[in-house]
Amino acid sequence: MGKKFALIVGASGEIGNTICRELADNGWSLYLHYSSNKARVSSLMNELEHSYPTQEFMLIQADMREASSIEKLANSIFSLHSIIFAHGHSLYKGLEDTTVEDIRHLFQVHVEHPMFLLGKVTSKLRKHLHSSIIFVGSIWGETGASYEAAYSAAKGAQHAFVKAYAKEVAHARITVNAVAPGFIDTKMNIHVEDEARTLILEEIPAGVFGTTQDVANAVVFLTSEKANYITGQIIRVNGGWYI
């Protein structure tokens, strides 16, 4: 069997970084996308090249807010078996204080440009016996969060797209799924104060916050042949916080 190539959009983020490591450990060659944090993703690539010398690792820069960057990103991809959207940003702000630019950037980064990119690269996925598309969605895309209305709406749109596109490409043996994390202990949640964290922890039946490894484990499973018959699903990784 030849090399398997995956594109990780957002490889420089905490969740993206862990997904890259787990995929590499499972034999994947990777396109490592970043927007601005070249130093971090370059360090990751050097580590992976040292640990997995028979696999290939390539850096790709693209601003997910710019349509022209998406065109450039698509043209940089050759063989492709899987694409994982692990990028994005949250927005903790009341709707009355949210600008149209805030909303536009959320939807461009999380929904509009990922859809545009998939329109450009699905033909590459179709060439293989099995391929996969995976979004790192959010618990807030399902149940919504106060003071994160715009972010929740963008994540809900991601989830809706997953369900629709799964039907569109199922005949081509391409699976489309999302992993919806609950509270993952990352810098994205650093705005949550200690008192609020304690209250959230009391609501999570598992009694612990999730880790980036928990998310990566689910993503890697969905890229595997064991998940060939799973498509259009939102896999909740939340310790029972939302069921």
Results as ranks from 00 to 15, higher is better:
148 E>Y: 07
227 A>M: 04
58 M>Y: 13
162 V>Y: 01
193 E>I: 14
104 R>T: 14
55 Q>K: 11
50 H>D: 12
123 S>G: 06
174 I>V: 09
131 S>T: 03
105 H>V: 13
217 N>W: 13
199 L>M: 13
111 V>M: 05
189 N>Q: 04
164 A>R: 11
122 T>N: 11
99 T>Q: 05
43 S>W: 11
67 A>P: 07
47 E>C: 08
97 D>G: 14
113 H>M: 10
133 I>D: 02
75 N>F: 08
141 G>K: 02
63 D>Y: 07
46 N>Y: 14
67 A>T: 11
78 F>D: 15
195 E>Q: 15
16 G>W: 10
115 M>A: 13
172 A>V: 11
218 A>K: 06
184 I>F: 01
143 T>C: 04
242 Y>H: 13
222 L>R: 05
150 A>F: 00
190 I>H: 13
45 M>A: 06
204 I>A: 11
149 A>H: 05
77 I>P: 02
141 G>A: 04
26 N>Y: 03
158 Q>H: 04
136 V>G: 02
98 T>P: 07
120 K>E: 01
8 I>R: 01
100 V>Q: 12
92 Y>Q: 13
202 E>L: 09
100 V>R: 15
81 H>M: 09
73 L>V: 00
71 E>A: 05
225 E>L: 14
54 T>V: 13
16 G>T: 02
131 S>L: 05
185 D>R: 12
242 Y>N: 12
225 E>M: 14
15 I>Q: 02
200 I>E: 03
55 Q>F: 03
200 I>A: 07
114 P>C: 07
206 A>Q: 15
165 Y>G: 03
224 S>L: 03
19 I>N: 05
60 I>F: 10
128 H>Y: 08
141 G>L: 03
103 I>V: 14
58 M>V: 14
190 I>G: 05
79 S>K: 10
144 G>Q: 04
173 R>P: 04
240 G>N: 02
102 D>Q: 09
58 M>T: 15
60 I>Y: 00
87 H>L: 12
188 M>N: 02
162 V>G: 05
239 G>H: 02
36 S>H: 08
